[in-house]
């Protein structure tokens, strides 16, 4: 290879293509700004068009409404900008209740995941031997390789009140309902909580824990005064995942939620009947998430992502 290289240099075998390449290289070498632009241009454009574009379309649609129609059958868009859909969201208690229920579910799932993930991640990051640690990382992330529906229907057959595995083995099952939705969502998003926590614990110097005990703190006090404040950014980073994923989920309700409805279920139903209203309701979780991200920005959790 090394011997042949001399023969293959562009200088010795000029071709229009390599000349162009050289000119391009020279241009980019002299204009670092253009280089960066070319590198991020394509993905950036994609992001702008597909992501920002669809978001804008959603928000604009939310400001439209269905045209007035004496028969109640015609579904034509009235593109007058207005807040009628949002008025309806606020004035009709059911939409507030569903939104609050979704919010509550997101908070509950996040808390459950945090409580379970904290000791697991602590063990992984601070106690386990490197070998056990690797095994646990694999074990914790393994369910991510199975599909959402696969896991959902597996849980459905576990929870089935008409003779599912839980009923047969434990004699009791929460059946299909809100509790089961929470349970399965907490299961689904658990890796997204445990991994940021684990990496937080891994980065936390053991000497801090030793210093704390050395200065007279017992385990509980060390957890509260030293570990927890240090791990909060990781905890918040994990919660961004568990919270937003739950907030946007609706299909698990169809699989194990019984008659439970979240924002997504209503959006899905209204989508084909009253598109602007569905769009307006879909803006709600986005607003909640933006608010949440703004609120946690100061904790430094966003640097964890």
């Amino acid at each position: 290879m090394g011997r042949d290289q001399g023969k293959l240099t562009p200088a010795e075998s000029p071709s229009p293509r390599s000349g162009l390449r050289r000119r391009a290289s020279r241009f980019f070498a002299r204009h670092p700004g253009a280089r960066v632009g070319a590198q991020i241009g394509a993905p950036g454009g994609w992001l702008l068009v597909v992501y920002i574009g669809s978001l804008t379309a959603l928000i604009v649609t939310a400001l439209y409404r269905l045209a007035d129609d004496p028969t109640g059958l015609v579904t034509k868009l009235d593109t007058t900008i207005g807040f009628a859909n949002f008025d309806r969201l606020i004035s009709e208690p059911v939409y507030r209740n569903v939104a609050l229920r979704t919010l509550q579910a997101a908070a509950t799932v996040t808390i459950i995941d945090a409580i379970i993930a904290f000791p697991v991640a602590f063990f992984m990051g601070k106690v386990a031997t490197p070998r056990t640690r690797r095994a646990l990382v694999v074990a914790v992330t393994l369910p991510l390789w199975a599909g959402y529906l696969v896991k959902g229907y597996a849980w459905r057959s576990l929870l089935d009140p008409g003779g599912g595995a839980l009923k047969q083995v434990l004699g009791h099952t929460p059946g299909f309902g809100y509790a089961s939705s929470i349970l399965v969502l907490a299961y689904l998003w658990f890796p997204f909580m445990v991994i940021p926590l684990f990496s937080g614990f891994e980065r936390l110097p053991t000497s801090l824990l030793e210093a704390s005990t050395d200065l007279g703190a017992k385990a509980g006090r060390t957890m509260r005064s030293v570990v927890l404040p240090q791990i909060v950014p990781s905890l918040v980073a994990g919660s961004i995942f568990t919270f937003s994923l739950t907030l946007g989920d609706f299909y698990m309700n169809r699989i194990v939620g019984g008659t439970t409805e979240f924002i997504g279920n209503v959006v899905y139903r209204q989508f084909s009947v009253d598109l602007p209203f569905a769009a307006a309701y879909a803006v709600v979780p986005i607003v909640i998430m933006v608010g949440y991200l703004l609120a946690v920005r100061r904790t430094g959790a966003l640097d964890e992502l």
Partner: peptide
Amino acid sequence: MNRFLRWGALGAIAVFVFAACGS
């Protein structure tokens, strides 16, 4: 680990999208 997280985030989005498609 940061990189790992980023993939995790992508995975989450993917799951989300599949969930929506599943419907």
